[in-house]
Design a protein around this nucleic acid. Structure first.
Lengths: 343, 343
DNA sequence: TTGAAAGCGGTACCAA
DNA sequence: TTGGTACCGCTTTCAA
């Protein structure tokens, strides 16, 4: 037993009574081979259970079929979806994904790229990391490897990035509410340092202005992403500004919290039906990274960021990209979809 | 421009004025090298930006440093966490992860393994796929590669698997409720075909019996994993069995739904405080794949399956494993943790 | 302490 | 239509 030697092309050649070059040709279907030889080789491959050693192929000069992916946090739903889309698309094209998680800090990212380069990847995708993009791309280019970025927001660097259209997403949500008849719309959630939030706010404000609707900066509420805080915030907001009829929430947690807050407020104000209280008074719209089953029963209209599509898109781009032409690659912005609450 | 040739060990040797063998020795710190030469080589490495080609290393006979991972569904929180833990642990040990998603069907899984084998991985981890384990392990063993399984439940095959202790998790939840004074406890959610559910139910029933508490099979409710269904189910359950004081929920969606159901029921029954209605009447416990921030405000006691730890654990095992001794590897069962609702 | 050379498993060019 | 063979980048004896 012990170290079972792997079946190589030599073994196949021997078994089929041909040379290694012939086997190689059959394998890649390149040369003009007589069908008799072809079958003999294939039979040998089958019998011996031969699997082609991709490392050797890559070493000789071919492509390795590996795409490196550096993802900031795999457990974040957005990046999980993105990575899933990436893997899906890459697998469909016979490539595979080498995954690295970028735990902390900038130095580490550089090292991730080097690790990937050492593994002989054909391309590298960085998902959700900001800054230092130019230096990294240069490093990758030195090795003739395409480097692409994917992110939730626009990149601070001047590098190409595939990302969601946060402005359009906000416009979508806002217009939906406006078309439903809402005129006084507030914003709840997110931290002012968030770039994605800033982009969304841009779309939100622009849409309000465009429709000639009032916009007050004190209707824009920062809020920690917990249900408790969101519930408190929405109640206090509505108490101070009773004319507000709709709220756009920065994420699903905030939206859930806001809903609970409304439920409580409805109860406390003596309404006899929470649903009617909600329906007649306050409409909720919110951004979500993925259409979550968990949220199916909450009366919120969701604008979902197409994380999976972004993954697929960036995969397609890296497959198409020639290492030399990467400089021509421009940002590719994927639109969001609106999922209206039924009923 | 165009195809920038990668810096090789030859270039380094040339630049440092030594032979390739010397460079190799310095790189791996193996031979006894004079510090003068060592420094000259390192300087050249630095200047040229050399990165060692792992494919060549692996081809020559060393380990590739790659671990293949086949995961059923990356977007499922349990498997996302598991994969993250896996990646974390592997990276800390200088390995990396080649990720494959097993979309559908059995044939495909076999192909995934072959793909991984062709890439020259040192080991393969299959996360969340059942059946056909024996055949796959055999295939891997032929190539001298260790194959390990990780899963949410016990495996139907007779192969080693790292998995959560579903029985213990259920025991944990049940005992917690009992210690809180609950005597009449129901079960809500999950499909009867689910193996994980069956295991949990085992722990649940055993604990009840152990404490001499009543157990009625009609207190075990199957339920689709949506909030709406769970809300309906919990209300109808309590209406039929008003003596029940606690419910164990099969997952977080069901728990959320149950809570909403209780809220509604409380309101309809004319209670003036939902919280007190809930607190005084029905306690909820539930299983969750990860401690989710989203759930921070729901009065549910969670038993979290340690997905990340399972990932880490299986990574450690595959790093430790010698290809030949895999048959001695037994199932490794990771206990769950209880997160009591504060207040 | 260092260098020369033989592979690892393929590919592809050049002959036959 | 096939076979011989020189590599790809690196490790590792074996000599020097």
């Amino acid at each position: 037993m012990s170290l079972v030697k792997r079946v190589t092309i030599n073994d196949v050649a021997l078994a089929a009574g041909v040379s290694v070059s012939t086997v190689s040709l059959v394998l890649s279907g390149k040369g003009r081979i007589s069908s008799a030889t072809g079958e003999r080789v294939n039979a040998a491959v089958e019998k011996l259970g031969f699997v082609r050693n991709q490392q050797a192929v890559a070493l000789r000069g071919g492509h390795s079929g590996r795409i490196g992916v550096i993802v900031h946090n795999l457990c974040h739903p957005f990046y999980a979806e993105l990575t899933a889309g990436l893997a899906e698309e890459l697998e469909q094209n016979g490539r595979m994904l080498m995954l690295l998680q970028e735990g902390n800090g900038g130095e580490r990212l550089q090292r991730c790229v080097d690790t990937l380069l050492a593994q002989g990847v054909d391309g590298i995708i960085i998902a959700g990391v900001s800054g230092r993009g130019v230096a990294l791309r240069e490093r990758a280019a030195q090795s003739g490897v395409t480097l692409l970025f994917a992110s939730r927001d626009s990149h601070p660097d001047e590098v190409a990035v595939v990302r969601p259209d946060n402005q359009q997403a906000a416009r979508l949500a806002t217009e939906y509410l406006i078309n439903k008849g809402h005129q006084r719309i507030a914003w709840l959630g997110g931290h002012s340092a968030s770039l994605a939030r800033a982009e969304r706010l841009g779309g939100f404000c622009a849409t309000l202005l465009q429709y000639g609707l009032p916009f007050h900066s004190h209707w824009i509420i920062e809020c920690e992403s917990t249900q408790r805080r969101a519930a408190e915030a929405v109640v206090s907001l509505l108490r101070r500004n009773p004319t507000i009829t709709a709220v756009v929430c920065h994420n699903s947690t905030v939206a859930m919290g806001a809903w609970f807050g409304l439920l409580r407020a409805g109860r406390q104000s003596g309404e006899d039906s929470l649903d009617s209280y909600y329906d007649s008074r306050i409409a909720l719209a919110a951004f979500a990274d993925v259409p979550e089953m968990m949220l199916d029963d909450v009366p919120v209209t969701w604008v979902t960021t197409p994380a999976r599509e972004i993954g697929r898109s960036v995969a397609q781009r890296i497959l198409r990209a020639e290492p030399t032409e990467q400089d021509t690659a421009n940002s590719f912005i994927v639109p969001a979809r609106l999922v209206a609450h039924k009923g």
